[in-house]
Nucleic acid binder design. Structure first.
Lengths: 132, 132
DNA sequence: CAGGATCCGTTTCGATACTG
DNA sequence: CAGTATCGAAACGGATCCTG
């Protein structure tokens, strides 16, 4: 990891998360789709390779955005979930979804997207409650 | 450019913008720093190479997020500015800045960041007004 | 000189195969 | 199931060159 360069604007320091396609998708899957295991991310994403997935999960964990919970009964099994820092990414994700639904979506937005758009605050509250 | 894969969630279709570090920085520079020329982006960013900058400007223009305005008097000179689609990225950027300022910023947030955090709606309105 | 385009060595990515 | 190892392909960044 290269040392962070200084900048007047704090967006810059978070580019490792925001500037990466896979990290964002993993957070989305955790936040909106209720996924939590390695295999689920691999299957549900848009085709992330296993090595890349492993590296991004580690990076997100190092950044304190997700935490890894090893199953005490079965060492092989592990689940991931968002930390409070990760949950606080919800407004960012929601704004992305709203923007994308408006300008980029090709098919009709699903119900969840409509809920985000029409009742943003209520939707955010329900996400927080569910993930906590 | 690879064909877009289908997905239930519209974030996926916008990864060309959201999943790229440089595109995000260019939009930020246009939106919050008032930059508008090739050279300004190159100097003010965190060290983007000219070839990469040229390609991202083209990509953002193709996506309809920025538009290129050639100076009719001086063919050498060109300025870029956000389209309305690009301006509508403001809420996303603002949420990113707020999040980053809370969790990642190492130095005290500048005045602009405080304004975003404390008076989000007012700040967004002023951005819209200035960029229109 | 501004705004790129081209070339090229290096890094990173990603698909597949493999392993505890 | 949850990841490593490998390796070719793509992207990056730096320098330089081109064009108006």
């Amino acid at each position: 990891m290269v040392a962070k360069r200084r900048s007047g604007c704090p967006i810059a320091v978070s580019l490792d998360i925001f500037g990466d396609r896979w990290s964002l998708l993993i957070v989305r899957d955790l936040m909106f789709k209720g996924l939590s295991t390695f295999t689920e991310f691999g299957a549900a994403g848009e085709g992330i390779a296993t090595n890349v997935l492993a590296e991004r999960l580690e990076r997100l964990e190092d950044a304190g955005i997700i935490e890894r919970l090893a199953d005490p009964a079965d060492g092989r099994k592990a689940t991931y979930r968002l930390t409070s820092k990760g949950i606080d990414l919800a407004p960012v994700l929601v704004e992305m979804v709203i923007w994308a639904a408006r300008y980029e979506a090709t098919d009709a937005p699903p119900a969840q997207v409509r809920e985000m758009t029409r009742h943003r605050a209520r939707f955010l509250a329900s996400v927080r409650k569910r993930l906590r």
